[in-house]
Design a protein around this nucleic acid. Structure first.
Lengths: 342, 342
DNA sequence: CTGAAAGCGCTAACAA
DNA sequence: TTGTTAGCGCTTTCAG
C-alpha cells in the first residue's frame, strides 16, 4: 500500500517488489503459461500489496488484442435498447469480451462520429443498430476487418452479419390481424420517421397490407420529443376529435399506445369493441396497465444475445468460425385486451 | 480506398501516401503545432483516401493521456441512470472527454470488478454512483490519482468529491409533508434494501421523522425483481388486504407508486382523501398517468451535469482547479394530485 | 514549419 | 519454469 503516488504503478514495480522478472509477473497476472505455485503466490501478494492495476493500454498495444465490443445504439432512454444490452452482456459475461456503448441519438452524423471514435480503440467486434448508415460509416465498418453485426432489422443488406426482425413484416402482420378482426377505420400514430427507419418500415408494411385489404389509413399523426405517455394521450385526443369515426388506433410504440389506452379508459370508451388499440415492442410496463395493450414483441433480449454470440464465436474461432450470418427472428402478436381476436 | 486489408492502416501508411513525415502527419491529424496549409491538405487528403482511423491505443500509451471518463452505475434499465448519463454527456460533449459506462447490478463485488477493469484503461476521471464501496474499491479509487466524483448521495464521506441529494433528508421531508397533511396510518413499500443504500437512507429518514411526530410505519413490504408497475399493484393490494385502515402509502420509487395508483383508481378509492400516495424520483412517465403522483425529484440531470463539470474542470485546469468538492442538491416535493396540501 | 530519435508499459517469440 | 530481446503505433522532445 505504500507507494509514491505521483506515478502510476507498473509491472516493473511488481517485479521489483516480488523479485520475479517482469515477464513472469505478466504471465501470472494473465494466467498464461506455466508458473510455479510459489512464484505465483509471491507475485500475487506483491501486486495486491502495492495495489497494482495493469495497464491495458500497453497490454493491448503489445498484444494487438482488445477485448472490447463496440455497441452502437440510438438511445438509452428508450426501454428497448437497455434490454438489448442486457442480452449482449448476458453472453459476453462468459467470455473475455466487454461491451462498450456509444449512443447516436438517431442521427447518422453522430453515428459516424461515434463509430470513428470507437473504431480508433480497435475493438474486437461491432454491434450496431440498424442497416442504414452513411457511406463513410459503411466504409469504416468494412475496412475495420472485424466482425460486424447489424441488429434490430433485417429489411436490407448488412455489411457483414445481421440479427433482428423484419419490421415491414411486423407491420403487415399487425395490419392483417386488425383487418381480420373486422376494424375498418384505422388511425396511425408514431414518431417522425426520417429519424427512425424501423418505425418507417413498420408503417410501410402496415399500409401495404391494409391496401391489399382495400383500406387506407384514415388518419395519422407524428410526434417527436416529450414524454411518450403524454404524447400518446394528446395525439389520441386530437385524432379522435379530428376523425371521430375511427375504430382502431395503431401506435408505433408501446409507450404512446399506453398513453392512448389510459386516455380512452378515462373517457369510458369500450375497448376493444368500440375502438381497438395496438402498440409495438412488448415492453414490460404494459403488464401493469389496467388493460393489456395488444403489441408485438421485438425479441430484444434474443437479438442482443444472438448478436453477442456471433461476435464471441468469431473472436474465439477466427475465420473458420461457423454461424448464421443472417438471423431473422419472428415476433408474435400479443392480442392482450385491446384487439379483438377473430 | 485501395488497401491490403490484412493489416490495419498506420500513420506510416498515411505518411508514405502523402510524402510527409509521420510526425507531421500526426500533427495534422491532431491539430497540434503549426503546419502549412499545403501539407495539411496533402495529409488530410491521403488519410481520407486510405480511410485511415488513428490507433488511440498507441496514442494513449505514447501521450499518457486517455480522454475517457469511467461512469459506474448500478443499472441502465432504471429510468434514473439514463437521465444521469444524459446530464454527463451534455457537458462532456463540449470537451475532449468521452464517457464510458460500467454497470454493477447493485452488487459490490461486481462494482469492484468493473472498477478494476475500467481503471486498467487509465481513464481521466471516475464518476461512480453511491458512497458505499468495498474497501478494495475505495483503495483503487484513492490510488488511481485521478478525479473521482461519487454521485446521487451525500450522506457519507466521499473518497474525493460528491454530488447528489441527501436521501435521509428526502425521506424526512416527505414524512413531514405527510404528517402535516394529517395522515396517520402510513404504509411503506420499497426495494429490498441491503442492495440499495439510497432507498435505505430514505426509509431511515422517513421513519425517523415519523417517529418525531409520534407515528410508526403501520405496515411495510419489500420486493425485488419483476416489473415494478406490476409489483406496485400487487404489493398495494396485499398490503391493503392485510392492513385495511392505512391512509397513506409511501413508495420508494415512482414506478411501484404508479402501479399502486393505477390499482387504487380501478378500485375507485378516493385519492388523496381516503388514501394518499407518494413516490420518489420525479420520472417523466408520471406526467402521463391519470393522476399526478406526489413525488420528489432526485435532480438526476443536474447531478450528472455537475459531476461531469467537476471532472472536466479538473482535467483542464489540473491541481489548481477551483470547484466545490461537495455539492448537495435540494430536491423539492411535487404534491401532484395524491398528497393533500396543508 | 518539419523531421529524427527515443520510449510509453506491456507481451510475443525465443532462449536458457 | 523462467528470463531476454524486440517491438506494438504513436507522441514527446529536441534538433534542424
Amino acid at each position: 500500500m505504500a507507494h509514491d503516488d505521483s506515478r502510476p504503478l507498473t509491472l516493473r514495480d511488481v517485479s521489483e517488489a516480488s523479485g520475479v522478472s517482469e515477464m513472469t509477473v505478466s504471465r501470472v497476472l494473465r494466467n498464461r503459461g506455466d508458473v510455479s505455485d510459489s512464484t505465483r503466490e509471491k507475485v500475487l501478494e506483491a501486486a495486491r500489496q502495492l495495489g497494482y492495476v495493469p495497464n491495458k493500454i500497453a497490454g493491448a498495444l503489445a498484444s494487438q488484442r482488445v477485448n472490447l465490443v463496440a455497441v452502437i445504439i440510438p438511445s438509452l432512454s428508450n426501454m428497448v435498447f437497455p434490454e438489448v444490452m442486457t442480452g449482449i452482456n448476458q453472453v459476453l459475461e462468459d467470455t473475455e469480451l466487454q461491451a462498450v456503448v456509444g449512443v447516436t441519438d438517431y442521427t447518422p452524423e453522430k453515428e459516424e462520429r461515434v463509430l470513428y471514435e470507437m473504431l480508433s480503440w480497435r475493438p474486437s467486434g461491432v454491434i450496431i443498430a440498424g442497416l442504414e448508415h452513411t457511406e463513410a460509416s459503411r466504409a469504416m465498418l468494412q475496412a475495420a476487418g472485424i466482425p460486424v453485426v447489424e441488429i434490430m432489422d433485417v429489411d436490407g443488406t448488412p455489411v457483414d452479419c445481421m440479427v433482428g426482425i423484419s419490421h415491414r413484416r411486423a407491420g403487415r402482420e399487425m395490419a392483417k390481424a386488425i383487418l381480420k378482426a373486422g376494424y375498418k377505420r384505422i388511425g396511425f400514430m408514431g414518431t417522425k420517421m426520417p429519424l427512425d427507419h424501423r418505425a418507417r418500415k413498420r408503417f410501410e408494411g402496415f399500409t401495404e397490407a391494409l391496401a391489399k385489404g382495400g383500406i387506407e389509413v384514415a388518419d395519422q399523426e407524428f410526434y417527436s420529443g416529450g414524454s411518450a405517455l403524454v404524447k400518446g394521450r394528446e395525439m389520441t385526443q386530437a385524432m379522435l376529435e379530428r376523425t371521430p369515426d375511427l375504430d382502431f388506433l395503431y401506435y408505433s410504440n408501446d409507450m404512446i399506445g399506453a398513453g392512448g389506452l389510459l386516455y380512452l379508459l378515462e373517457k369510458g370508451v369500450d375497448i376493444p369493441a368500440e375502438i381497438g388499440l395496438a402498440g409495438f415492442n412488448g415492453v414490460d410496463l404494459l403488464d401493469g396497465l389496467p388493460r393489456q395493450l395488444a403489441t408485438m414483441d421485438a425479441c430484444r433480449l434474443d437479438v442482443g444475445r444472438t448478436a453477442a454470440q456471433i461476435i464471441a464465436t468469431r473472436v474465439a474461432d477466427g475465420d473458420e468460425a461457423k454461424y448464421e450470418r443472417h438471423v431473422e427472428l419472428t415476433p408474435t402478436i400479443a392480442y392482450g385486451d385491446t384487439l379483438k381476436r377473430k
